[in-house]
């Protein structure tokens, strides 16, 4: 464990909590892509199947349970509790455009052709595109509430810190997880455009982020 990975995991946790609290306190999920949240729940489910077979550390196990619980709670709030505030017509990204290539690729490129390994690879590739429906919704509606942008900011920060973590681990322990690194770089690239908008629009106190 290194500071970059720990900070990254904390940012990830903060992002999930920001979103969950925003939905719970505003009792609304307007402007939030339910599809992205479903994809994240699938990412955690397919990645953390080793929860029962491999024990890494108390931290690892606890964080996996927390991420699973919070992501399912978020999906529950969107599709059950506050479903009347969910504008599904704006959440129109075709998930099959993501799932088909990701499933195909995880069968082609993986470390071992075993169910657990293929599901882990699937979760890595899926996570890199899971935010697309949310970013698509923002470009479609042309705006995002500032809380949603804070959520995206921390999510992007988590990915950037993970890249720093991989650089650190490569230089200190020669660790290099090719699938995770390639997928993580692709995922981080999606946030770069958003980071620019976040800094120029939201941090200038505009409250809402409106796209040009």
């Amino acid at each position: 464990m290194n500071i970059f990975r720990l900070a990254g995991d904390v940012c990830h946790l903060v992002a999930i909590i920001i979103l969950l609290l925003k939905i719970w306190r505003s009792r609304s999920c307007a402007g939030i892509s339910g599809k992205s949240q479903v994809l994240f729940a699938i990412v955690f489910t397919t990645r953390y199947l080793d929860l029962f077979t491999v024990f890494i550390s108390p931290y690892n196990t606890i964080m996996k349970v927390v991420f699973l619980a919070l992501s399912y709670a978020t999906v529950y709030l969107i599709y059950m509790r506050f479903r009347n505030t969910f504008n599904s017509e704006n959440d129109s990204f075709r998930l099959e455009f993501l799932l088909v290539p990701v499933i195909g690729l995880s069968f082609l490129e993986n470390y071992a052709f075993t169910p657990l390994e293929i599901l882990w690879t699937f979760s890595i590739f899926l996570e890199s595109v899971a935010i697309m429906p949310q970013l698509f919704m923002i470009t479609k509606t042309g705006e995002a509430e500032s809380i949603t942008t804070h959520y995206l900011f921390f999510l992007g920060l988590y990915r950037a810190l993970y890249i720093a973590n991989w650089v650190w681990r490569y230089h200190t322990e020669g660790f290099f997880d090719q699938i995770a690194v390639v997928s993580g770089v692709v995922q981080t690239i999606f946030y770069i455009d958003f980071f620019y908008l976040y800094v120029t629009k939201v941090l200038r106190g505009r409250g809402k982020m409106t796209l040009p």
């Binding site: 990975r5 995991d9 990830h12 990645r47 080793d50 491999v54 890494i56 550390s57 690892n60 964080m63 996996k64 991420f67 470390y111 071992a112 882990w120 993970y162 973590n165 290099f176 997880d177 090719q178 995770a180």
Partner: peptide, 10 residues
Amino acid sequence: DGGEDEHDEL
């Protein structure tokens, strides 16, 4: 191919 026996990252 850099096989990973166990994935220790979240």
